[in-house]
C-alpha cells in the first residue's frame, strides 16, 4: 500500500458462465484515486459481469479482487457481507423494493450493519434515520419519503437508489448503467449526483455507461472494454476515434 490510497485492485479476473466460453478474459486494473471512473463498451462485453464480480453477486471463475486489504473472491459468509456493505451498488433498473416506502428503501442500505432480529423489528439507529432523511433531502425527494417506491418516476427512483447506496457509507460505489433507462436531462442529473457523493465521501464510483459523451463529460478516467478485455485505460481526453472503433467495432456510427 503506497501513500496514494488504493481503493480497489482487480488482477487477472476471468468469468465463464459456460465452461470454455469466457465473458471476461483476464481483466486487470486498479483504482487509486476518488472520483468517477467510467467503463464503456458494447453490450454483452462483460461490463455488468465485471461490476457484479466485485461485490460477488456473480462468482468469478479466476483472478483476484483486492478490496480493503483482502481478496473478495475468497470471502464467504459474514466476511463477505462485511465487504459488501462497503461496496454500494446502483442498478440500471433501480431495483428498489417496490412495495416498501421510499424512506424504508433508503434505510435498507443499513441492513448490512444490522442483525436480522433488528431488521425484523425495524430497529434502526436514530442516527441512521436522521441520515436517511438528510440524504433524501440531498437528492431532492424529502416530500416523497412515505410514498411507496413504485409510485415514483424513473429519475426519482434512481435518486432513491443512489441515496440507498450512499446510506451504506461505502468505500466505493458501483453503478451498472445507472442512466440507460433515463432521458438525457435526467441522466445528467443522476451523473451529477454520483459525482457529488463521490467527491463528498472522497471515494471512487465505477460507472458502466453506453453514452461516450456523457462518460467524457463526467469521468476522470475511462476504461474501454471490448470482447472481455480492457482495450483503453486512461484520461477521457485521450480517447480517439481509433479507440472507439476498437471498442465498439465498425465506424459508420461515428460522425
Amino acid at each position: 500500500m503506497s501513500a496514494a490510497q488504493r481503493f480497489l485492485e482487480v488482477k487477472g479476473l476471468k468469468k465463464e458462465y459456460v465452461a470454455g466460453n469466457p465473458i471476461l478474459k483476464g481483466v486487470d486494473f486498479s483504482i487509486d484515486s476518488p472520483g468517477i471512473v467510467a467503463i464503456i463498451g458494447p453490450s454483452g462485453t462483460g461490463k455488468s459481469t465485471l461490476l457484479r464480480c466485485i461485490n460477488r453477486l456473480i462468482e468469478p471463475t479466476a483472478g483476484q479482487i483486492i478490496f480493503d486489504n483482502s481478496d473478495v473472491c475468497l470471502a464467504s459468509g459474514k466476511v463477505l457481507r462485511h465487504l459488501r456493505r462497503q461496496v454500494a451498488m446502483v442498478f440500471q433498473e433501480y431495483n428498489l423494493v417496490e412495495r416498501l416506502s421510499v424512506i424504508e428503501n433508503v434505510l435498507s442500505g443499513r441492513l448490512g450493519y444490522m442483525t436480522s432480529w433488528q431488521a425484523w423489528r425495524r430497529n434502526y439507529l436514530q442516527s441512521d434515520i436522521n441520515n436517511a432523511y438528510e440524504l433524501l433531502a440531498a437528492v431532492g425527494l424529502e416530500e416523497h419519503a412515505n410514498k411507496r417506491a413504485d409510485s415514483l418516476s424513473g429519475g426519482q427512483r434512481q435518486r432513491v437508489g443512489i441515496a440507498r447506496a450512499v446510506m451504506q457509507d461505502p468505500r466505493i460505489i458501483l453503478a451498472d448503467e445507472p442512466t440507460s433507462s433515463l432521458d438525457p436531462k435526467t441522466a445528467v442529473e443522476i451523473m451529477e449526483l454520483l459525482e457529488k457523493f463521490a467527491s463528498e465521501k472522497n471515494i471512487p464510483a465505477l460507472v458502466n455507461m453506453h453514452d461516450v459523451k456523457l462518460a467524457q463529460r463526467f469521468a476522470k478516467r475511462i476504461i474501454g472494454m471490448s470482447n472481455g478485455h480492457i482495450v483503453y485505460d486512461g484520461a477521457p481526453e485521450g480517447i480517439t476515434d481509433e479507440h472507439l472503433k476498437k471498442i465498439y467495432g465498425g465506424e459508420s456510427w461515428l460522425d
Partner: peptide, 27 residues
Amino acid sequence: KQVEAIRATGASFVSVILFAVMPQVFS
C-alpha cells in the same frame, strides 16, 4: 432484482427474506 439489491447491501439471508421477499409476497 430487488433481492439482488438488498443482497448487495451486505444484508444477511434472513434480512434479505424480510426486506426483499416478504414485501413482494405478503399480500
